[in-house]
């Protein structure tokens, strides 16, 4: 017998604290797989956010820094500038990156900071109990939009991948999803590309990953995957928004 699937080396043995069926766990594993594939475990430093993934440092066999809410891109900038031959990534939720940390992500991208950002868009604030996120969909019920997100009073969701694509600094930007095995494979490819872009020194790279929050969406894990596919993907189209020629295209 030969193994076709096992635990990546860069993923620690620690049991994840995430809710049953939360796709944060899948994305952690994909990041670890990409790091294994590229053989960069001893050269990679992660930056954990404030959000459900605050304990990400426990789940990777990597050196890590834990950043204040939204500040991970600034922290990663500091690390990368001291250690330009190492690989630095941030792992950030949508409240972290697209609300409180919007300035940090936009300017890190604009500077073309040679870091990789794994951006988890689950359309909600998970950790604090399901409040509205900048990415919550029009009409989406959350604990702070109990009647559904009203675009007339709170405005529209932010499409981070598209917005950052308007900048010249980023070298690679894509949006992927993890709602079924086929898309999980593509997400893995995208995350690996993003790291490759950094390894090749081409500039800033970001992968927006559509993810679930079954707990705060009030759905079973299986229903949550379906909700993501049917509601999030139409608003947040998958695809590669920016890619250097040297890096071959990832199909979405």
């Amino acid at each position: 017998m030969e193994q076709v699937f096992g635990r990546p080396k860069a993923l620690s043995e620690k049991r994840l604290h995430y809710c049953p069926g939360c796709t944060h766990g899948i994305i952690h594993r994909l990041v670890a797989e990409a790091i294994d594939d590229l053989g960069i475990q001893d050269k990679t430093i992660g930056v954990a956010p404030v959000g459900c993934a605050v304990l990400a440092y426990d789940y990777f066999n990597l050196d890590f820094q834990q950043a204040a809410h939204g500040r991970a891109p600034a922290v990663a900038t500091g690390i990368k500038r001291v250690l330009p031959d190492r690989f630095v990534f941030t792992y950030q939720g949508d409240g972290d990156l697209a609300s409180i940390g919007m300035a940090e992500i936009v300017h890190a991208a604009a500077r073309g900071e040679k870091i990789t950002v794994i951006f988890i868009n689950n359309a909600i604030y998970g950790m604090t109990g399901g409040q509205m996120a900048p990415t919550s969909l029009p009409g989406q019920k959350t604990t702070t939009s109990p009647y559904g997100r009203d675009i007339n009073t709170v405005g529209y969701p932010i499409r981070v991948a598209e917005m950052l694509t308007t900048l010249d600094g980023p070298a690679y930007i894509s949006r992927v999803s993890v709602h079924d095995p086929k898309h999980i494979n593509k997400a893995k490819e995208a995350i690996r590309k993003a790291f490759e872009v950094q390894i090749q020194g081409l500039g800033f790279s970001l992968v927006e990953v559509l993810s679930t929050c079954p707990t705060n969406w009030g759905l079973s894990p299986r229903e949550a995957l379906k909700w993501l596919e049917e509601n999030m993907i139409p608003y947040y189209p998958l695809g590669v928004f920016k890619s250097p020629e040297e890096v071959s295209k990832v199909g979405a």
Binding site: A74, V75, A76, K80, V82, L83, H107
Partner: peptide
């Protein structure tokens, strides 16, 4: 060395956090 004019003082201090944590005198 490295000089960065950050987008805000908030960013600047967090860059210091990253750089200091990576072992540099920041």
């Amino acid at each position: 060395g490295v000089f960065i004019q950050a987008e805000s003082e908030v960013s600047a201090i967090n860059m210091v956090y990253g750089a200091g944590g990576a072992g540099g005198r920041a």
